[in-house]
């Protein structure tokens, strides 16, 4: 069971992330209401592409770590950079045991004025950037995100950011055969974490009338 693209960008007030709700069984659209973005602590969200069961395992690991952090009660809280480092160690350790967790993770957060956006995959490869896209999105959406965001990380408004992600998710829904038109959008700002309920993208198929040569 696999999930497809996750997109995330930095913007004026923090970071925003989007992903759809489909779990595919090969090319079969098997589960259409699964959530692939999770909150991790007070300042972070983690989005996952790839094997859904491995992602659920990663959620359990994060929950364990966060519960320990909570009951220690010494006034310290894990921020996005801490969670990113932890996940990168888990992912690299698993690949080193020839038993990788088959995921492409996006860690995004905002803590004490510090925007964070990082990527870690099944090989333990990491990087940080002001836009990140996984899966099909890394080919189709990433150039659009870069063009809109790079150099303007502190200028892009919330409305602009949301439109950019929705437009990109719509394009993926049109062109990625493993994508879905129900998405969730998450944001992390100084106000904290919000993850939207799944909602449907608006679509426009009028162009279909003009497509010729596919048996229509």
């Amino acid at each position: 069971m696999t999930g497809t693209s996750v997109l995330a960008i930095k913007y004026k007030d923090g970071i925003m992330m989007a992903g759809d709700t489909l779990s595919s069984y090969g090319s079969l659209a098997r589960f259409r209401d699964t959530r692939r973005i999770v909150q991790a602590g007070d300042y972070t969200v983690v989005g996952a592409t790839g094997e859904v069961s491995d992602y659920q395992h990663i959620k359990h690991l994060l929950e364990e770590v966060l519960i320990e952090e909570y009951y220690t009660e010494d006034g310290h809280k894990l921020g996005p950079r801490n969670i990113f480092e932890y996940l990168s160690r888990v992912m690299y350790n698993r690949r080193s045991n020839f038993n990788p967790l088959w995921n492409y993770l996006v860690v995004a957060g905002f803590k004490e004025g510090d925007k964070f956006l990082g990527y870690v995959d099944l090989r333990g490869t990491t990087y940080q950037a002001s836009t990140i896209a996984t899966g099909y999105g890394s080919m189709i959406a990433q150039p659009l995100l870069r063009k809109a965001v790079e150099g303007r990380e502190n200028e892009v408004t919330e409305e602009e950011a949301l439109k950019l992600l929705e437009d990109s998710m719509r394009i993926l829904w049109y062109r990625d055969a493993r994508a879905w038109d129900k998405i969730q959008v998450a944001k992390v700002t100084s106000e904290g974490v919000t993850i939207s309920e799944p909602y449907k993208l608006t679509t426009d198929w009028t162009v279909g009338e003009y497509v010729k040569g596919y048996g229509a």
Partner: peptide
């Protein structure tokens, strides 16, 4: 593991 100086407590 956490890229964080350990809290003293």
């Amino acid at each position: 593991v956490f890229d964080r100086p350990i809290p003293v407590h």
